[in-house]
Design a protein around this nucleic acid. Structure first.
Lengths: 142, 142
DNA sequence: GCATTATAGTTGTATTGTGCAACTATGTAA
DNA sequence: TTACATAGTTGCACAATACAACTATAATGC
């Protein structure tokens, strides 16, 4: 692989992350933070799951996920179900309120992205989505 | 533009940023932080420049850039040149030491990216670099 | 059955990266 | 020369993360 191409990708990615971090700090898109958005998205798609399993899926430290669930539980967006087979563990489930919140945030983000990508071609969007997905899979194996 | 595609991109991007944030927290690639890497890269490519102009180029708050330059100046990676025409302003220039540091970090990052992308095709890398660049330009106009 | 070890989760602490607001010092314009 | 504008710094707050120390429970070995 050519050095130039990889350096290119490196710099573009670093720039992208800087931009995204800055954006996350000031403007709240919808009301959910990025971390909460991703967590609720996961819970909306799959059954009840515990902190440990989540931390493995997300490849985050278990303490990080523990804090995230704590926040969402306090807000009433997720519900803690004690694990009947293990007294140490709990499983979390998204609530109706959490679903509403997720829907609103999703909608707000969609509006933003629609504006952002309005002059991108269908094909470019398809490619971008595909390559980002591959990139995320690539990071998993790291 | 189809809703599904945009939601896809949204989620993949959010996931990517989460991964990148996590990676930045523990593993230091080379010795420079991401923010310092980008700042030094800019200074290595262009002439002396002040905090205000940098903050506009990067679209970051001037206070954020001020802190970044302060750190790099302390480490001796950049040098402050008082602006002869404006007593309030300074311009920064990368030093030899800064150049060395940048080179090392660049090399370390290249090694990592070479491994990461070893099973990507040339064409995929080209497309990814191109689309990320376009994406970054897209965020500029936001 | 008890002692040891392993595991799920929480909490304290630290770090990176960011923005806003208040401030200082200097420059510019009325 | 007084008022306003601008470059930069610093105090504070916050999101997101990891690591280490801890608690409570489970599992294992004997």
């Amino acid at each position: 692989m050519e050095q130039k191409r990889l350096e290119d990708i490196d710099l573009e990615l670093a720039t992208l992350v800087r931009r995204a971090t800055a954006a996350a700090t000031d403007k709240k898109l919808g009301t959910l933070e990025r971390s909460a958005y991703l967590l609720l998205t996961q819970l909306s798609a799959h059954g009840p799951i515990g902190v440990k399993a989540l931390s493995e899926q997300f490849r985050l430290d278990i303490s990080t996920v523990s804090r995230q669930t704590a926040v969402l539980e306090t807000k009433g967006y997720i519900q803690r179900l004690p694990d009947p087979t293990d007294g140490r563990a709990s499983n979390f489930q998204i609530t109706e309120l959490g679903m509403q919140e997720l829907q609103e945030t999703k909608q707000a983000r969609l509006v933003r992205f629609s504006k952002l990508f309005h002059d991108w071609s269908e094909e470019e969007c398809r490619m971008l989505g595909q390559l980002l997905a591959k990139l995320n899979r690539t990071f998993i194996d790291e």
